[in-house]
Simulated scan of single mutants.
Amino acid sequence: MPFGGRLPGSTVSHTGVLPHKTGRHLILGVWNIADTGNAFYACSDVRF
């Protein structure tokens, strides 16, 4: 979800579609910071 360089609110949520998988997997989230080469990364272990 692009914010056009604006500061997001204190709570941000996203929706998406997960593939039909079973077992253990990783979900990688990347939040790019506008106008920089910097980003935040979050990795989650999940079990479907």
Rank of each mutant, 00 (worst) to 15 (best):
M1V: 09
M1R: 04
M1T: 00
M1C: 09
M1K: 04
M1Q: 02
M1H: 01
P2D: 14
P2T: 13
P2Q: 13
P2E: 15
P2F: 12
F3V: 08
F3R: 04
G4S: 04
G4D: 01
G4E: 01
G4Y: 00
G5T: 00
G5N: 12
G5F: 05
R6I: 07
R6K: 10
R6T: 07
R6V: 04
L7H: 09
L7T: 06
L7A: 11
L7E: 05
L7I: 04
P8K: 01
P8N: 08
P8F: 02
G9K: 08
G9T: 03
G9A: 09
G9E: 00
S10A: 10
S10P: 04
S10Q: 09
T11H: 02
T11R: 06
T11G: 00
V12F: 04
V12L: 11
V12P: 02
V12Y: 01
S13P: 01
H14E: 06
H14P: 00
H14N: 06
H14K: 08
T15K: 05
T15P: 00
G16V: 15
V17C: 03
V17D: 03
V17K: 13
V17L: 14
V17Q: 08
L18R: 07
L18S: 08
L18A: 12
P19T: 01
P19G: 07
H20R: 15
H20P: 00
H20T: 12
H20L: 12
H20K: 15
K21H: 11
T22L: 05
T22V: 10
T22D: 09
T22I: 10
T22M: 06
T22R: 07
G23D: 03
R24W: 02
R24A: 13
R24V: 15
H25S: 08
H25R: 13
H25N: 14
H25G: 05
L26Y: 14
L26N: 03
L26T: 06
L26V: 06
I27M: 07
I27E: 12
I27N: 07
L28P: 00
L28C: 07
L28D: 01
G29S: 11
G29A: 11
V30W: 01
V30S: 05
V30K: 04
V30G: 01
W31M: 03
N32T: 08
N32C: 02
I33T: 02
I33Y: 03
I33G: 00
D35I: 01
D35S: 13
D35W: 01
T36Y: 06
T36W: 05
G37R: 08
G37K: 03
G37M: 15
G37F: 08
N38G: 06
N38C: 09
N38W: 14
A39R: 15
A39W: 07
A39Q: 15
A39C: 13
A39T: 08
A39V: 11
A39S: 14
A39L: 15
F40G: 01
F40T: 02
F40W: 09
F40K: 06
Y41L: 06
Y41E: 10
Y41H: 06
Y41G: 02
A42Y: 11
A42C: 06
A42Q: 10
A42P: 02
C43R: 08
C43K: 12
C43D: 03
S44I: 13
S44G: 09
S44H: 04
D45W: 10
D45Y: 14
D45T: 12
D45K: 14
V46D: 02
V46W: 09
V46L: 10
V46I: 14
R47G: 04
F48R: 10
F48W: 08
F48G: 02
